[in-house]
Design a protein around this nucleic acid. Structure first.
Lengths: 194, 194
DNA sequence: GTCTATAATCAGATAGAC
DNA sequence: GTCTATCTGATTATAGAC
């Protein structure tokens, strides 16, 4: 049942302050540490204000995710205009903070349905942008798109960067150097005309 | 400060019951839902018993992880004896429950140091086992090991299976079919003598 | 439109009883 | 060796004041 309690304006300054605080906590301490008290404390506000601007903690997480994903889509749209789009996408995907926050949202989403479907929706947009970039690069370089479906390039770049960065964060690095070298060798070949 | 409170015997029946309950909750609802109350409820025991058998919740998580990882290492050691070891490893890595629990532990570990280093230690063992399997397969098939370092095969199989399974759980499947086909085509080539 | 006082519940942990 | 009574504090959320 939807509560009738009033909610703060979407463009209020404190709302943004709270989202910023929540995001920093999520990155530093994980999603489970994002409680109304800790968010408020970090924002320098009273805990009850979290519930004034966000009806529930789930709403807060949803807004955090949307804000970040919209920003990420903008960055990706610029990144694919680089001289070597695949290489630029790869480096974009190797950003430790980006990977960490994404992993937090995915872990959180496994059991929060609203967040889960929102992540799926946005992920599809990210993948579509990457697929299109790969399609252009591959066809420009003269590859047979029926043999190397561009979308596979997107899945591989996403998979490898995420797991390598995640493992580094855990203190595991076996095989990373060799794998990164192989990926970069492949990217160089894909982005060079034949 | 180490507490002097006594702790239950490692082989007590209820200790196992609690670990089982905790593992099911982690799989179904995520690590944040693994609280002493919920674990006890699922186990049909009193909440205080969790703290009798495990000094802290962190200890409980550590024991859950060790039990599972030891079991996983045993399974992997058998799997690499299959006729097509890489293919068998790939299928082992595509197990949704295995991936889900692993992801939960990794997310949890990012900010719990004891768990983090334990995961790193075990991950190294898993990777080493896979590396050795890949080394044997590749050299048997006549590949040049200096061109395709076997450890890369391990990193790639781990990365791709984890992310594909994770995305499926979110309801995202764009590019998966094509990627799985490519992986299986590669595996077939690697495991066939040339 | 913005914020506070307060309810109701849940969590981790320990000392001490059987 | 096994389990319980209980403390202390944190957490989400709402109704209502400014």
């Amino acid at each position: 049942m939807a509560s009738s309690r009033r909610i703060g304006a979407p463009d209020a300054k404190n709302r943004t302050v709270l989202l910023d605080a929540a995001e920093r906590i999520m990155l530093e301490k994980g999603y489970a540490a994002v409680t109304s008290r800790k968010v408020a404390e970090r924002a320098g506000l009273k805990p009850q204000l979290v519930h004034y601007y966000f009806r529930t903690m789930d709403d807060l997480f949803l807004e955090m995710f949307r804000r970040r994903a919209d920003e990420g889509l903008k960055v990706q749209a610029e990144v694919v205009n680089a001289p070597n789009p695949l290489r630029a996408l790869w480096e974009f995907g190797m950003d430790p903070a980006g990977v960490a926050v994404t992993m937090e949202f995915i872990a959180l989403a496994r059991h929060r349905d609203a967040l889960r479907s929102e992540i799926a929706r946005y992920s599809e947009l990210f993948r579509e942008g990457q697929r299109e970039a790969a399609r252009q690069v591959l066809s420009r370089s003269g590859y047979d798109l029926s043999k190397i479906p561009p979308v596979v390039v997107s899945v591989l770049l996403t998979s490898i960067s995420r797991v390598v960065v995640m493992e580094e964060a855990l203190g595991l690095s076996a095989g990373h150097k060799e794998t990164v070298e192989l990926v970069e060798w492949c990217l160089a070949r894909l982005e060079e005309s034949r």
